[in-house]
């Protein structure tokens, strides 16, 4: 009696969530697959009564599209550069934090600070730091060139000023700025997770190593890293997923033109491509690109899980 009463109650409690999920999660999954398989699909054409061919032509088009390939290249490059760099740096910082006593909590707080910031707003700060052109005063063409704070800092070490993000800057200068910003932005979460993992490692392992007077480097590679491996795997997987969806950090630094002045779109990413196609009412192409993105994330996650299963000690 009570049980059957519960049954309809459970569905009643779940109903708001289920209704919203059906509209905004389940239907999009179905519809994205549908749109991706209708050649050159757009909602405007559909309301006009246009009959679309069925097939995988959208995918072929996207994969042969130079713009998309450029986005894919940028996304992959940023992933390959930022994921190892931020993971290794976060691991170093977490291990050092775990090895000190005074000021540990204070420093932990400092390292977590970038997490609560707004990626676009702080991207604008990085953009200002790398910027080499001040405001125009008087005429609309007269530009005042400053060195920019980053150029001043590297100048101390004898490096010549570099045009980082302004018109005429090189692709690799742009990528460097993005890598610096993305790593800065990614550190807090990784340090938080890795430090949490380190603090939960049983002290006995270290005490045993001490008795055997094991060298520090061996303790690190034979105790710390293996016992921390589930956390490292977690951090790497989420970093790859985030990396493939990179978008707002580029908007933060370069604005929604996704590139330096005079070369818009140069730094566009896969997510950026999806939004551009959507804005151009090419929903078929956008859907195909979104499914390709999903496939890449899925495959990379599976590879990561497979590798970490072999290398992880639970």
């Amino acid at each position: 009696m009570v049980e059957s009463k519960h049954k309809w109650k459970a569905w009643l409690y779940l109903s708001p969530a289920i209704v919203l999920l059906l509209i905004f999660t389940v239907w999009p999954i179905i519809n994205t697959i549908r749109m991706s398989l209708l050649v050159d699909y757009s909602t405007i054409k559909e309301t006009g009564g246009y009959a679309f061919d069925f097939g995988i032509k959208n995918f072929v088009r996207v994969l042969n599209y130079p713009k998309f390939l450029n986005c894919l290249k940028n996304t992959l490059l940023l992933c390959v550069l930022t994921v190892p760099l931020s993971t290794i740096l976060a691991l170093l910082i977490a291990v050092c934090l775990n090895a000190i006593k005074p000021l540990q909590r204070f420093l932990q707080t400092v390292f977590f600070l970038p997490y609560v910031t707004n990626s676009i707003a702080i991207g604008m700060v990085f953009s200002a730091m790398f910027n080499i052109i001040g405001n125009n005063i008087g005429s609309s063409t007269q530009l005042i060139t400053t060195a920019g704070i980053i150029n001043n800092i590297i100048g101390v070490f004898g490096v010549d000023p570099i045009n980082w993000i302004n018109a005429g800057s090189s692709y690799w200068a742009n990528i460097t700025v993005l890598v610096v910003y993305i790593v800065w932005d990614a550190l807090p979460f990784k340090i938080l997770v890795l430090l949490g993992g380190l603090q939960s490692i049983n002290r006995q392992y270290y005490d045993a190593a001490k008795v055997d007077s094991t060298p520090r480097s061996r303790v690190f590679t034979k105790i710390t890293v293996p016992l921390l491996s589930p956390m490292i795997a977690y951090v790497v997987i989420t970093a790859f997923i985030g990396g493939f969806k990179e978008y707002s950090s580029i908007v933060g630094i370069f604005g929604d033109g996704m590139g330096p002045a005079g070369d818009k779109g140069r730094l566009n990413t896969m997510v950026g491509f999806i939004y551009d196609s959507l804005a151009a009412s090419q929903e078929g192409l956008a859907s195909a690109a979104a499914l390709i993105l999903f496939a890449i994330i899925f495959v990379v996650t599976m590879i990561n899980l497979y590798v970490s299963k072999k290398k992880t000690h639970y």
Binding site: L14, W27, I29, N31, M35, T43, V271, A290, L293, T301
Partner: peptide, 26 residues
């Protein structure tokens, strides 16, 4: 219950951009 919960968790794997296109239309 368990099947429904598992299905919900599975949707977490899908990147949000995939939903955005249709949600925009909706």
């Amino acid at each position: 219950k368990n099947a429904l919960f598992a299905a919900l968790l599975a949707t977490m794997m899908i990147p949000g951009e995939l939903f955005t296109i249709t949600n925009y239309i909706t």
